[in-house]
């Protein structure tokens, strides 16, 4: 268990006055307050550290105890053993489905703090640590393949030992978050439960590039086909499609295949488009005969 230098956390010296502590805490709390730093886990962690440091240093008795024993706190080993046992126990009852990182740490205090001052004190200045009405919001993330998002899917997840059946709408995008109302922590004083937020990580396991519901791909077209025209067959997410390449097709020509993109999020039976860019392939390693033909073409001022 690591010793925490609370003076360092608040950026003050060991002989800081009550006023210094208050001032340093206020300044850092404003900087790292989670409500002012949405979706920033680092800020949330820092805010907890700052609160913990303030909790100890702004309380005369705690500060005295910390100054006296802090560095070589004698019950550290004993506490660590107990903590390890708890961890082993929770490992025997794991939660969470495949690819799912669920739940949220409820440890607002460090091991160091808990071993020295006991468990949750409940008198933080911040109301964030414990629910005061509505329950805590939980955050989780779920990784999907792009090909899993072609249809709306139902999936059962386990979050904090609770089974939740969720619907993942087709066309969900990378880093999109959906809210499952009421599946967060329980409320207090008859307050409603918090919400569960699931952030989706959509990995592109296809050869297409994605932007919203549209897909993009560059296809090589042989030089002669670009000039004379002809058919090419390409793969889409829903099977092969034959395309007519027009005679005298220019390099970089874009073709739109309507409705061959991804399903649009929460718009049933609406699809994005697939854009194909033709890249004319300039032949290499020509045979003598082919080179002569090109020379003949060159003679016509082509």
């Amino acid at each position: 268990m690591e010793f925490i230098d609370y003076y360092k956390v608040l950026g003050i010296s060991k002989n800081a006055t009550e006023g210094d502590i208050k001032k340093a805490y206020r300044k850092l709390a404003r900087k790292h307050h989670p409500d002012l730093n949405p979706d920033n886990e680092e800020a949330e962690k820092n805010f907890k550290k700052i609160n913990e440091a303030n909790e100890v240093l702004s309380n005369k008795e705690k500060r005295k105890k910390y100054d006296q024993y802090g560095k070589d706190w004698q019950h550290a080993d004993e506490f660590e053993k107990q903590k390890q046992q708890q961890r082993q126990h929770s490992r025997q009852n794991p939660g969470g489905a495949g690819g799912f990182n669920g739940g949220q740490s409820n440890e607002d205090f460090s091991d160091f703090f808990e071993s020295m001052f006991g468990g949750q004190q409940g008198n933080f200045n911040s109301s964030r640590q414990n629910a005061r009405f509505r329950g805590q919001d939980y955050n989780a993330s779920l990784t999907l393949n792009l090909t899993d998002t072609l249809t709306t899917e139902k999936q059962t997840l386990t979050v904090n030992n609770k089974k939740i059946r969720i619907t993942i709408p087709a066309g969900i995008e990378d880093e999109q978050t959906i809210k499952i109302a009421g599946y967060g922590g329980p409320g207090v004083n008859n307050g409603p439960a918090g919400n569960l937020f699931i952030k989706f990580m959509v990995q592109n396991n296809t050869e297409f590039t994605r932007e919203g519901a549209n897909l993009y791909k560059t296809i090589e077209v042989p030089l002669t086909k670009a000039i004379l025209g002809g058919d090419i067959t390409i793969d889409t997410l829903t099977g092969k499609v034959k395309l007519k390449v027009k005679p005298e097709t220019q390099n970089g020509t874009k073709v739109k295949l309507s409705g061959k993109g991804l399903p649009k999020y929460k718009k049933e039976n609406q699809f994005g488009d697939l854009y194909i860019t033709y890249q004319v392939k300039i032949p290499t390693n020509l045979t003598k005969e082919q080179k002569e033909l090109f020379e003949a073409l060159a003679a016509t001022n082509l």
Binding site: R30, H33, R128
Partner: peptide
């Protein structure tokens, strides 16, 4: 309204904490 509650709580926290 329930869906407004997180915002109200956020404002109260900012008021009380900071």
């Amino acid at each position: 309204p329930l869906e407004e509650l997180p915002k109200v709580e956020k404002m109260v926290r900012l008021h009380q904490d900071l």
